[in-house]
Design a protein around this nucleic acid. Structure first.
Length: 120
DNA sequence: TATGCTCTGCGTCATAACTA
DNA sequence: TAGTTATGACGCAGAGCATA
């Protein structure tokens, strides 16, 4: 067979998990890594037991919110980066498959020519 | 050059999915 | 089951481009 062996097996782990569930064969691009390191400038909270006044509670709530927003900001950046990578991966796969398809069509035409009975 | 349109990236919120 | 993370959706701002 003249099927080119250039079918990419480069499927990276790049499809959203729910997408993977939908299509059944797409890889996932969700990479859950343990995030132990805090971003720079983040100060760990005082233990809840050490909070007393309503003002302290309010400050703690504000601090928690800012920490959450910062984490989510970083998560969103990373998510977008992975998504772009995933799309690039899909686009290159499309390009490869288009070339492969073209070759197969050409091969089919050649075989048709060879096999078709000559009618004079 | 001013204006409108499109594209791209960002921050935030809501929520699904996951983990301890 | 509460807390955490990943991601879709939305709105905003800035850059680049066409065109009147």
């Amino acid at each position: 067979m003249a099927v080119t062996g250039d079918e990419t097996d480069e499927e990276t782990d790049l499809a959203p998990s729910h997408m993977a569930a939908a299509t059944g064969d797409m890889p996932t691009y969700q990479i859950r890594a343990p995030t132990t390191a805090l971003p720079q400038g983040v100060v760990m909270a005082a233990s809840p037991g050490s909070l007393h006044s309503p003002q302290q509670l309010a400050e703690e709530a504000t601090r928690k919110r800012e920490l959450r927003l910062m984490k989510n900001r970083e998560a969103a950046k990373e998510c977008r980066r992975r998504k772009k990578e995933y799309v690039k991966c899909l686009e290159s796969r499309v390009a490869v498959l288009e070339v492969q398809n073209k070759k197969l069509i050409e091969e089919l035409e050649t075989l048709k020519d060879i096999c078709s009975p000559k009618t004079d």
